[in-house]
Design a protein around this nucleic acid. Sequence first.
DNA 1: GCGCATAGAATTGTGCACAACTGAATTGCG
DNA 2: CGCAATTCAGTTGTGCACAATTCTATGCGC
Lengths: 167, 167
Amino acid sequence: MAVTDEMVCFSLYAASRATTQAYRALLEPWGLTYPQYLVLVTLWREGEQTVSSLGEHLQLDSGTLSPLLRRMEVSGLVRRERRATDERIVNVVIGSRGTELRAELEHIPAQIAAGTGLGTTEAAASLIRTLQQLTATMQAATEAAAGATGAPTGAAAGTAGAPTRDR
Amino acid sequence: MAVTDEMVCFSLYAASRATTQAYRALLEPWGLTYPQYLVLVTLWREGEQTVSSLGEHLQLDSGTLSPLLRRMEVSGLVRRERRATDERIVNVVIGSRGTELRAELEHIPAQIAAGTGLGTTEAAASLIRTLQQLTATMQAATEAAAGATGAPTGAAAGTAGAPTRDR
DNA sequence: GCGCATAGAATTGTGCACAACTGAATTGCG
DNA sequence: CGCAATTCAGTTGTGCACAATTCTATGCGC
């Protein structure tokens, strides 16, 4: 039923803010935000990244990442270096402070795990699957809607409205 | 396992942004944001609210609601009236434009429902229960951490506003 | 009545998100 | 080669979130 589905969205919205809040409390001693923490974790696990590849991992665009990475560079968490062979690309590398924090923040995942209240790994895995499927479906729906809005006359438009994005 | 629980948090974060995005696409013709839509729905369903009671419903504080309601008042979506018997309290009432939109936005829940990809009402209800429990647990954990000022390394010493440089 | 504590909303300041745009570098095609 | 199309990061502008603070009105004790 429609109203129930809207409640799903609100519950997501509330739960997301509650978890971000939990991270905020845990990360506050280091002056880190949750998105900054996500960048660090990505670099620790995957190594050097471009701004775009970070954006794919975290599903964020340069409008969000650029200022975020600038702040992280100022505090020595990361370094940004233009790639010599292609000056358009910026490589994001873990910084000295970022390396230090890897050990200091080791306890965070366990603290979060304790806070979720999800007893079994299976429950968590199941929730992840549901959420990922929801995310994918919603993104597809959004793109479909974007193509349909704007009240196009339906005629003309031989120019193939979709900007052909391959992922 | 700890890493899995962190993935739950990231999935929540991603799913929340994906659903907000879907609402953005649907609400864009009316220039509404998702939080603004939530305020309208609350007023339609519950009637006149104070800023505080709205905050309880949506789990938002006055720092978020005050500017949001000011913008909504400018566009005639709501009205704000200081209560005569207690000038501290501001009653938020649906505005003329807000009343009009009730009919115009009637289709939104169904469109969202179509986008969730959650087949049965039971699946949605189950997800809602899981998310609400997660929200409650995380909020409790956050409050507990705030009270204890956790920081297991013995460091801590907030110094909020002075990011990094805690040595 | 007076003073102080408290409640409720608004303000200030920071940091995401995100749409739209800019600007530089590179690629591709004639 | 020459140049238009594309790619990538950054910038601009708006609107949440949220901590911390401020401002006003009310309540309470004396």
